[in-house]
């Protein structure tokens, strides 16, 4: 079985956002990690390989540092890695990313394409579904349970107020919810880490993919930091009186009651 896992390198969850002189997000000194949702996708992909045999290819798009994320994927158990990296892709929007990735992935055999359901940096949650459209494949997002038998897959996905179970014919694109199939992303052995250094990690530019420059369809005009949380108000006094005052404030000022 051929499995492709899309992996994105994102800012650390704890990272502080700082703007540079041009009002853009400053990446200097920020710790980068593998998008936590993509780790669950990787875990799922490796488990599928362990069950059915085959290869897992980790694919990412990003700068040179994204190689670290791919090496992590290889250490966990992916067999090969592919990085799409080009300065022209620095300001990519979701459409550009999809074009590049689709071009790269179309050259790899695939039965199942996996990714995390959302990247924790921009939270857009679009690229993999767009990718499915581009590749003319069915896609199922926010999958919590997944199993394969022969050529058919059964996926359970989260929806508002419950879950939805679907049956799909392979190949298929899935985005994984945290805890998919109840598994935690594995901790690799040192032997795995050492082997990872020797596994194939190919880097491709737009030219390598045979693509001309791609013009984003969406441009970001401005970044703002969220409004800082205001200090809380303490309501003094005896409990009965304080409670009354609190209700008044919730009704008049906070307007939630």
């Amino acid at each position: 079985m051929n499995i492709v896992v899309c992996v994105k390198q994102t800012f650390d969850t704890e990272a502080k956002i700082v703007f540079d002189s041009q009002g853009r997000i400053d990446p200097n000194g920020v710790n980068l990690i593998v998008n936590p949702y993509d780790e669950f996708a990787l875990e799922e992909g490796i488990r599928l390989k362990e069950k059915f045999g085959g290869t897992v290819t980790a694919v990412s798009m990003g700068g040179a540092r994204a190689q670290e994320a791919l090496r992590t994927a290889l250490a966990m158990g992916a067999d090969k890695a592919l990085l799409v990296s080009d300065p022209a892709l620095n300001d990519a929007d979701e459409w550009v990313s999809t074009q590049a990735l689709a071009q790269a992935i179309s050259k790899i055999p695939y039965d199942i394409i996996l990714a995390g359901r959302v990247a924790i940096d921009d939270g857009s949650s679009q690229v993999c579904v767009r990718l499915a459209e581009e590749l003319h494949l069915p896609s199922v997002s926010t999958v919590v349970k997944f199993s394969v038998e022969g050529n058919k897959a059964t996926a359970v996905r989260e929806i508002d107020g419950g879950t939805e179970t679907l049956e799909i014919e392979l190949p298929v694109v899935l985005t994984a919810q945290k805890g998919i199939n109840g598994n935690e992303p594995r901790y690799p052995s040192v032997a795995g880490i050492m082997k990872a250094k020797k596994k194939e990690l190919k880097t491709m530019t737009l030219a390598d993919l045979g693509l001309a420059a791609l013009e984003p369809k969406m441009k970001i005009s401005k970044y703002d930091l969220p409004t800082p949380r205001q200090a809380g108000k303490k309501v003094p006094g005896e409990p009965a009186a304080a409670a009354q005052e609190l209700v008044k404030l919730l009704h008049e000022e906070a307007k939630v009651l």
Binding site: D12, T13, E14, A15, K16, G29, V30, N31, I33
Partner: peptide, 9 residues
Amino acid sequence: RPIAGSLHA
């Protein structure tokens, strides 16, 4: 991980 993340940030 949050510890390391916090130290970085």
